[in-house]
């Protein structure tokens, strides 16, 4: 195996397990059309840093930081409007039955839409903590905000999220 091939394989072995994490973050950061581009650019930027001799000790927070920077620079460059996806999300498998999977997918769609009703800082903090599993200290480091601020954003966002979905459920029931 060539040195070059080994370098790519080492990087992909170390970072691809974190793809879901990067994907979840990108989904709450940019428009649906830009999500895959941001994920791809995150990985190519990360590989450039890795191959330049700067591999991180912890892959997950490192990739999340790169993803956040990549997404934000895309938003700045394109002045992309951030909005709730208005059409059915192609990444969530459609199903004809009312099995648990279909219900879970409907719920995911509802949660995703509700997350986009939150201010960006709350949405990103919740994504990093509750969807990606980072600690408050790690989120503080990734976002460059004090830990207390992160916790306040997450808590306020969670409260809003719970209320939004409860309102929707009671609306459906009545």
């Amino acid at each position: 195996m060539s040195m070059r091939k080994r370098s790519h394989d080492e990087f992909l072995d170390a970072t691809l397990p974190a793809l879901d994490l990067v994907y979840n973050l990108a989904r709450r950061l940019v428009n649906p059309d830009d999500v895959e581009d941001v994920v791809q650019e995150t990985y190519t930027r990360a590989f450039e840093a890795w191959s330049a001799g700067r591999p991180p000790r912890k892959v997950e927070p490192w990739l999340a930081t790169i993803c956040l920077n990549t997404g934000r620079s895309l938003l700045r460059r394109a002045s992309t409007r951030r909005e709730v996806p208005s059409e059915p999300d192609p990444t969530l498998a459609a199903s004809d039955d009312v099995s648990d999977d279909a219900i879970a997918n409907m719920r995911k769609r509802a949660v995703h839409a509700s997350l986009w009703e939150l201010p960006e800082e709350q949405r990103i903090a919740i994504t990093l903590m509750d969807l990606d599993g980072f600690t408050a200290s790690q989120v503080a480091k990734i976002t460059g905000s004090p830990r207390g601020t992160v916790l306040a954003r997450v808590h306020r966002g969670r409260k809003k999220l719970a209320r939004i979905l409860e309102k929707e459920v009671s609306h459906v029931e009545t």
Binding site: L19, E36, R158
Partner: peptide, 21 residues
């Protein structure tokens, strides 16, 4: 509620990332 919104990346994206890298 937030945790229940966690999604998996599509397989096609995994392949796209691998090819791009």
């Amino acid at each position: 509620v937030a945790e229940s919104g966690r999604e998996m990346a599509p397989q096609a994206l995994r392949e796209r990332v691998r090819a791009a890298v």
